[in-house]
Structures are given as structure tokens and as C-alpha cells.
Amino acid sequence: MLAVTAISPLRSAEASDVSFPSQVGAVYRLSFNGFNVGKYHFDASYDGKSYIAKGHTEVSALFGAFKWAGNFTGSGSVETKGPQPASFEMSTKTKSKTTSVKLSFDGPRVASVALVPNKSPSPEAIKLKPENLQNVFDPMGATLAISSVNAADACNRTIPVFDGKARYDLRFSMKGREPIKEKRPSGQPAELLICRVKYVPIAGHKPKDFVNPWIDYDHIEIALRAVPTAGIYVPYRVTVPSTIGSAIMTVDTINITAANNQQIALKQ
């Protein structure tokens, strides 16, 4: 699952001096092929120097025959150029399998990787090179970086990611804009910026998995919503198309405590 669920500074000429919010809490609805399959809960805090972001997902499909749960934690600092990850942990659980990933960073490079189970990479996988672990984001840091840009560049950049096994790029391009309606006016712009995102495998993957894949890696979409009052963007909707239907993550509620303690509530 593409984990694209964090919130970070909206950097524009008008908001360059806005501090990151002290608290952000969000709940997203998860659906597949039009059926509700679960929720994703996200919480982040910032103390003026460092951030910690946590996420929890529970998915149940096929009348409970398939169950998946995941916990994610990322920490680091927020610098002028954007988030700088320090650590990342992820654990996932199905009915028959439990896995975990732990990453630590030394400046811009990945310093350590711990995987459970710790299996050797497949001989078919593209071998990771030292340069693949330089200047990358973990999945939680990546979702922060997705929003931490100038407004004009939100859909015109590449985010390098390493998740503990695979190194890949998320290449953004502009698709368009979309008006939205609010049940309760929030005072924020009622418009979404729609970014098309291409998943580009770099290393750690098996090339055969990307020959006629069932997921459409070229046409993932992320809809961002600007919240100028808090100086941030929020991911509002993520769509991952496939040959058997689309997986969609959509905002349910978002509650923000801005740096000046102003409370902002968004509801789909």
C-alpha cells in the first residue's frame, strides 16, 4: 500500500514564514472497487525542531477472509529545505504473517536496516547500491516531503523513497484542479490540486513484477488541498488504479492545531 498520509509545510511566497502546526490528526476512509474496506488514522506533532508522525491502518475485505493491519512511525527534523528523517518503523500483520522494518538515518543517508523476517534478497532482484541509500526518504518522511514544496511545484517534482527493501521514485506531474463542497465551511480554499504520480522502481525489485503489472504504476493520483491558515497542504485523496479496480483513500476528518493555536477542522 502506498502510504501517502502525512501533512507538511506549505511553502509559498505568502507563507514562507509560517510555522509547522503543533498537532495534526486525520482519519481516512479506504475503499476498493467501491466497497469500504477499512480506515487509516494519522497523527503528527511538531515541537518547533523535530516531528513525529504515526499511522495505523486496518483493512478487511472479502467478508473478513482477508485482513491486514499496519503501524507506521517516522521521526526527524523539519529544516528549511524540508523534512530530514531520523528513524522509521513499520510493522504489518495478516492472519498468517507478521513483518517489521526499522530504518535509521545518519544525515542524508540510511545508516541501518533491520528486517523481520531477515531473508536474503531474491537473486532476481535488482541489487541495491550504496548510492541508492543516499538522499532518500522513508515512507513517512516521503509523505511529509510530498507536501513540503512551493505551491507552484506541488505537481512538478520527484520524491526518492527507500522502504527497507525497495528503492523507488515517485514522479509527480500536473493533471488539473477540482472544486470540492464542504458540509461545514472551513474558510480554506475549496479546491483540490490533482497530481498524477508515476511509481518508478530503481532497485530492490524484481523486473518481472513490472512486466504487465496488475497495478497501474503510471497513473496513481494524489489530490492535495491547501490550508493557508495553517501554512500546510493536506493529502485529500489517493487513487491507485489496477486491472481489477481502484483502491482509494479519502479524507473523513482532519483536525489541525496551527502554530498560533488556531483550530482548523476539515470534513469531507
Rank of each mutant, 00 (worst) to 15 (best):
W214P: 12
I220T: 05
P121M: 09
A125E: 10
T243D: 12
G231N: 08
T98V: 08
A65D: 04
G76L: 03
P117T: 02
K206A: 03
S50F: 05
A203W: 15
A142I: 03
F88A: 10
P121K: 04
A114Q: 15
T73A: 07
V238I: 05
I146Q: 01
P83F: 03
S122N: 10
S100H: 08
I248K: 12
N260C: 11
V110F: 00
W214N: 13
I194S: 01
S31A: 13
R196L: 04
G74M: 03
A6I: 09
S19V: 02
K119Q: 14
E14L: 13
M174G: 09
I244Y: 07
S246N: 10
E221W: 06
K54E: 02
V116I: 11
R171E: 03
S50W: 06
N33L: 10
D106H: 11
T80R: 15
I248S: 05
A125C: 07
S173M: 00
K67Q: 14
A111M: 08
Q262K: 14
D163E: 07
P201W: 12
S173N: 07
F88W: 14
A226H: 01
Y233Q: 12
I7Q: 03
K119F: 12
Y199Q: 05
E124T: 14
L193S: 10
G141N: 02
F88S: 04
H205E: 14
I146P: 00
L30E: 03
G34N: 15
D163G: 06
I256C: 02
L170F: 11
L266T: 07
K267I: 14
K102N: 10
Q134R: 15
L62N: 08
S122H: 09
K165T: 11
W68H: 13
Y236D: 07
C195Q: 00
S16A: 12
I52A: 08
T94C: 03
V238F: 06
P83T: 00
P235V: 13
Q263W: 04
E182N: 08
T5E: 11
K81P: 02
A13D: 14
G82S: 13
T99R: 15
E89D: 14
L266V: 01
E221G: 04
V18R: 04
G38M: 05
G187V: 09
S148V: 02
V251S: 00
G76C: 05
D138N: 02
A152I: 13
A154F: 10
S22N: 12
Y199C: 08
Y40H: 06
I180L: 02
G70D: 07
K119W: 13
K198G: 12
A114F: 09
T94A: 01
A13S: 09
Y233C: 03
F105Q: 04
V227D: 05
L170I: 10
I220R: 09
S120V: 13
R29Q: 15
I244A: 08
I256K: 00
V59A: 01
M1H: 07
L133P: 12
N132V: 08
A44Q: 09
H219P: 07
T250W: 10
N36D: 15
Y217Q: 10
V27W: 05
Y236H: 11
A259G: 04
G48I: 06
K175H: 11
K81V: 00
L30N: 00
A247P: 10
S75F: 02
M90I: 04
